[in-house]
Each structure stands twice: as structure tokens, then as C-alpha cells.
């Protein structure tokens, strides 16, 4: 399982209310009908952290190793989609794969 804190975009000090707000905002951005996988990830993350008891349980018993995607999300979160520059187009059109 990916780090639920990163999935929801909250810190380890987040309260029940912070987590619920982050979940609701996430679902608004990624509604289940448009992005079911992302929604599923948000749902799992929310269920893992919903209450103080669950957050402590996660801290104590989650043994999943960090994934590369976790590390990337933590170090440099994905931003807004950007448009490649002409040089990037040129590289591909000239046959550099």
C-alpha cells in the first residue's frame, strides 16, 4: 500500500477533520466515475487514517516498504500537467526515442 498520508496530501499531525477534508477534496478532484483507480486509492487511504486509533494502528502495524512512487511524491510531488517545449518535440520527431 502506498503511504496514505501522501495519497491524501496531509501530514502525520493531521486531525480527523483535516483527513476528512483532504479526502473530500480528493474525491472532488478525482470522482469515481472519472478516475476509479485514484478514487479507490483515496478511499483506502482515508479508511487507514480516519480515526486516531486507525492512525496509530497504521503507525504500529503497517509494514509495507516505501515505493518509488511514495519517495517521488514526498520529495517532489506531481504538479499540474505542463506542455513540453519545442526541443522535446524536436527530439522525438528527429527519431530520438
Amino acid at each position: 500500500m502506498s503511504d496514505p498520508y501522501l495519497t491524501l496530501g496531509v501530514t502525520a499531525k493531521a486531525t480527523d477533520a483535516d483527513i476528512e477534508a483532504a479526502y473530500r477534496a480528493g474525491v472532488k478532484r478525482h470522482p469515481p466515475e472519472r478516475d476509479p483507480q485514484r478514487f479507490e486509492a483515496l478511499r483506502s487511504a482515508y479508511e487507514a487514517l480516519r480515526t486516531r486509533r486507525e492512525r496509530l494502528g497504521y503507525e504500529l502495524f503497517d509494514t509495507s516498504p516505501p515505493t518509488v512512487s511514495d519517495i517521488l511524491d514526498k520529495a517532489a510531488p506531481t504538479g499540474k500537467p505542463r506542455r513540453p517545449d519545442p526541443a522535446q518535440f524536436a527530439a522525438l520527431l528527429r527519431g530520438e526515442s
Binding site: 517521488l72 520529495a75 517532489a76 506531481t78 504538479g79 500537467p81 505542463r82 506542455r83 513540453p84 522535446q88
Partner: peptide, 9 residues
């Protein structure tokens, strides 16, 4: 780049 990954990422 299209997905929003910064050069650092």
C-alpha cells in the same frame, strides 16, 4: 512533462 512531473522529480 505532460503528467506534471517537475525536472527534479
Amino acid at each position: 512533462t505532460l503528467r506534471g512531473w517537475s525536472p527534479e522529480r
